[in-house]
């Protein structure tokens, strides 16, 4: 049998590439949820990041400005959510939904003049090495965001487990009342986490419009924000498991694309529905263990916090 190792390498690289936005957005949201905040606006923040990144790239031709611009835009829009839920004490669920609707609207508005424009060339690293059989396409010739995405969950893991700041985030998510008693500024911590989540969703969006696609298409996040939210539950709030879950979803997406290309006699739409059906399946399997979910869910997740004076 003739197995083309290089082809397998390319497929694995494709899987990894398609999981990048999921890793970034889910890990960002993981920090947000660990601090006790449920931001359902991930989809909206990703799409804002996508258009901002693309717009900055087209106007400045600087990848650095484009990336930071997208993250900055993510932070700005996440601050709307932060201000509403933390300062005006609104319910997390509807506020997050509003953020998604708003983000999709704003992105389409901003993107009016960018529709159909081809994306710019993005610098990649170790371009010449990607000819190496198998590991070449996997390890080399990718953008900076790609590499970042695969080390990022490890950083977040270390941050949560080993640093005092991470401990404070977990403490706030465990109980905002106790945290207040201990003199922790709960609202400040949560604002910072929300902004961090916004930045990471923004970066995920930038990856879509600058690297993955690369152009601006309305609604191009196509549910990735929601899948990222599901991944956080799947990972039981552990960043390393987010990595695993994202790769799993990446594989399904790539698999169905290849099946479509190979002309498998299953309607395209059914294949395209696979990632969404898989999300449901995975959620069901993981949620059946009630005890495990309860032990890992941040205790104060989604609860509005009001500090009595």
């Amino acid at each position: 049998m003739n197995i083309d190792l290089n082809f397998i390498g390319i497929i694995i690289a494709a899987v990894m590439a398609s999981s990048v936005p999921l890793i970034l957005a889910a890990t960002g949201e993981l920090i947000v949820e660990r601090s006790g905040v449920l931001n359902l606006g991930v989809e909206g923040m990703i799409i804002i990041g996508a258009i901002s990144g693309f717009a900055f790239m087209m106007s400045t031709e600087s990848i650095v400005i484009a990336i930071f611009g997208a993250m900055f835009a993510g932070i700005i829009i996440s601050l709307i959510f932060g201000f509403l839920t933390q300062t005006l004490l609104t319910l997390h669920v509807p506020t997050g939904l509003a953020l998604t609707i708003f983000g999709i609207g704003v992105s389409a508005m901003l993107g009016k003049n960018f529709v159909g424009l081809p994306g710019k060339e993005i610098p990649v690293f170790f371009e010449n090495l990607d000819k190496i059989t198998f590991i070449g396409p996997i390890l080399f010739g990718h953008s900076i965001i790609f590499y970042f995405a695969f080390v990022f969950p490890f950083f977040v893991y270390y941050f949560l487990k080993k640093t005092k700041m991470g401990l404070i985030v977990r403490a706030v998510g465990d109980s905002h009342h106790v945290a207040t008693d201990q003199g922790i500024n709960v609202i400040l911590v949560r604002y910072l986490c929300i902004m961090f989540g916004g930045a990471m969703s923004g970066l995920a969006g930038a990856y879509l419009s600058l690297v993955y696609t690369p152009q601006w298409i309305e609604n191009m996040s196509s549910g990735r924000g929601w899948i990222a939210l599901a991944l956080v539950v799947f990972a039981t709030w552990n960043p390393l498991k987010v990595l695993v879950g994202a790769l799993l979803f990446g594989s399904i997406s790539i698999l169905q694309l290849h099946m479509q290309a190979a002309g498998v006699r299953i309607p395209v739409q059914f294949l395209s529905a696979l990632p969404y059906l898989l999300t449901i399946l995975v959620l069901v399997v993981i949620s059946r263990d009630d005890r495990k979910i309860k032990l890992n869910t941040p205790n104060s997740l989604g609860k509005t916090f009001y500090k009595e004076n």
């Binding site: 005092k164 401990l167 977990r170 403490a171 465990d174 109980s175 106790v178 945290a179 201990q182 922790i184």
Partner: peptide
């Protein structure tokens, strides 16, 4: 006034 899901040591470190 303790964080239930954190370890004893983590509670004290905080």
């Amino acid at each position: 006034s303790l964080f239930e899901t954190l370890s004893v040591l983590e509670n004290l470190i905080l």
